[in-house]
Amino acid sequence: MRIAVCVKHAIDETELKTGPGGRPVLEGAACKVSVFDKNAVEEALRMRSAQGGEVVAFTIGSEDARKSLKEALAMGADRGVLVVGAQASLDTGRTARTIAAAVKKEGAFDVVLCSEGSSDTYSGQVPPMLAEALGTAYVGYARKIQLEGGKAKVERLLEDSVEEVEAPMPVVVSVVSEINEPRYPTLIQIMQASKKPVQEIPESQLAVDPGSSPVAVLGMSVQTSSRKRVIIEGGPEDAAAKLIQELEKEGVLR
C-alpha cells in the first residue's frame, strides 16, 4: 500500500501581526502545519499499520515548509517531498495541479489523503481538484475509511446527513477532524525525524499549467479582534434591544 498525504505549511493565524494600514504582515509570518492535516497524517499512519506499506508526505513552500514535513515525519511518515516554490495563496487550482505533478513524479499511489480544508483559508477545493488532475476517484469529508479488495468504503459526514460510498482505488480522500485523534510527536521523535529523507523538487521542474486566469489577491485587512468590552446599560428590554442592534452590525445574527 502506497499512501500519499498532503500537508500545508500554513500561516499561523494566532501569531499573525498587523502592519501599517491594517494589513496583515505575511512576509516572514510564522507558519505551522495546517491543523486538520494532522488528521490526514494520522489516518495514513493507521492505514499503514493495518496494511503495511509506505507513507509519503507532500508539501509546497520555501525551506521553512520543511518544518511541516518534519511534523508529519515525526508523527511517523516514512519520507517527505518538498516542492520548492511559492505557496499559490488563494489559487486553489494551481496548488492542486502542482501537488498532482509532484505526486505523479513519485509513482503510483493507492490512496492520497488530504484534510477537509486548511487552517488558513479553508476553501476545501484542493482535494477534489487534485483528484481531477490525477484522474482518480475522489471522496470528500470522510469520517471512516475501510480499504478492501482495491476499493475504499467511506463514510462521509455532510452537514445534515451521513453517506456511505464506495470508490475504486487509487482514490483521493479528504478527511474530517472527527475521523481520529492525531498523535502528538515527542521531542525525541521530532529529532529522529530529521534523519528521515526529504526530497526537494523545484516547482519549475514540474511544468505546472498556470491556468487560463490566475486568482489574484488584491488586498487584505485585519479585522480588529481585541474585545470591545462595551457594557450595555439599561433595563433588560432596553439592553436586549441594544444588544441585538450591535450584533446585527457585527453581522453575526442569521
Partner: peptide, 8 residues
C-alpha cells in the same frame, strides 16, 4: 481574522 479581496 483577515478579510481578503480576491479577483479573477
Amino acid at each position: 481574522k483577515v478579510v481578503a479581496t480576491v479577483s479573477c
